[in-house]
């Protein structure tokens, strides 16, 4: 029954998406140019991946881990740039290593001292970031000054996405989704009962690191399009919205992917139409709208459903 509800909502969302695209074409005479298609497909794929990967973070109550580790990636990017120059692969490897060090630092501090996880995350976020900023200002001081474009890594650049980028997102995104499917049981277990998974001999440290790495990769993929802060939102919002409608993990992850797809396509599509509207913020606005709808109208959990329930109980009495 719940599974079918997820299917219905997913179908409705996709139908809305197609309807919006059609209204755009016929109602407003929007031409779906090659650029627009590229941007919208890129944004949609990114949203889909973020929705799926983000679900696990939200369920583990580590939503802001994405925030921490994406800021923590900066020194890795800077060092990779120093060694290898502007090579996207090298920058991503650098980002991954720095973020993983951050994750290990968080684990080490929370396990060996009385510092709580949120504080440890805050410390890593800002200290790693500061180290990255120091390295960046060192790089900027270099006489050759070939560093232009590195702060795009922090803020993202709207609608400058190319077909090459979309291919990269597709390939890496497919890989991420495959890994999710492969480790489905393990991820499910550590999301709901970490201690049980550890006690049963699952390699929880490895799974932790793997999940963190997947979040890092997703964020790095999205930096071009949305920038760090807004990628954090895109990792959280679709999952939160999906959680209101359904209860099963499979249904939730799937629905989060569909919501992410919707927000990514519409958001980046709208911003590609009008130069004045930046991509990342538009995607976040749409995603927040989806969250608002879910919080209000979801059956059982939604605010309106809750209100009606208490109202009925009171009137019966």
């Amino acid at each position: 029954m719940l599974r079918s509800r997820a299917a219905i909502i997913a179908a409705v969302t996709l139908a809305c998406l197609i309807a919006l695209l059609a209204i755009g074409a016929w109602g407003f005479g929007i031409e779906y140019s090659y650029t627009l298609q590229t941007v919208a497909i890129g944004g949609g794929l990114l949203g889909l991946i973020s929705g799926v990967i983000g679900s696990f973070g939200v369920l583990r109550q580590q939503s802001l881990m994405g925030d921490a580790i994406s800021h923590a990636a900066l020194p890795g990017v800077a060092i990779a740039f120093l060694i290898a120059g502007r090579e996207l692969g090298a920058l991503m490897i650098g980002a991954g290593i720095a973020s993983l060090l951050g994750v290990y630092w968080i684990t080490a501090v929370t396990q060996t001292s009385r510092i709580k996880q949120d504080t440890a995350m805050g410390i890593v976020l800002v200290s790693w970031f500061a180290f990255g900023i120091a390295l960046l200002s060192y790089i900027q001081g270099r006489p050759d000054a070939s560093q232009a474009g590195l702060d795009r890594f922090i803020f993202g650049q709207a609608a400058a996405i190319t077909a090459e980028d979309v291919r990269l997102i597709t390939v890496i995104g497919t890989g991420l989704l495959l890994i999710t499917a492969l480790f489905w049981k393990e991820f499910k277990l550590i999301a709901f009962n970490y201690e049980f998974a550890a006690a049963n001999g699952y390699p929880v440290r490895f799974l932790d690191a793997l999940l963190s790495l997947m979040i890092v990769i997703t964020i790095v993929l999205g930096l071009q399009l949305a920038g760090v802060i807004l990628m954090v939102g895109l990792l959280i919002a679709p999952a939160v919205a999906a959680r209101q409608w359904v209860t099963g993990l499979g249904a939730m992850v799937g629905l989060a992917g569909v919501f992410g797809l919707f927000a990514g396509m519409i958001g980046s599509g709208v911003s590609a139409l009008d130069v004045g509207l930046p991509t990342g913020p538009m995607i976040i606005l749409i995603a927040s709208l989806i969250v608002a709808i879910a919080l209000l109208f979801a059956p059982e959990r939604g605010v309106i459903a809750q209100w009606r329930r208490t109202h009925q109980t009171v009137s019966k009495e």
Partner: peptide, 18 residues
């Protein structure tokens, strides 16, 4: 409906986006 960490993660990207 939303855990504290996720609530923060929805609220501030939204305001920042605005």
């Amino acid at each position: 409906l939303v855990k504290a960490d996720a609530a923060l993660g929805i609220a501030f990207p939204l305001l920042f986006a605005l």
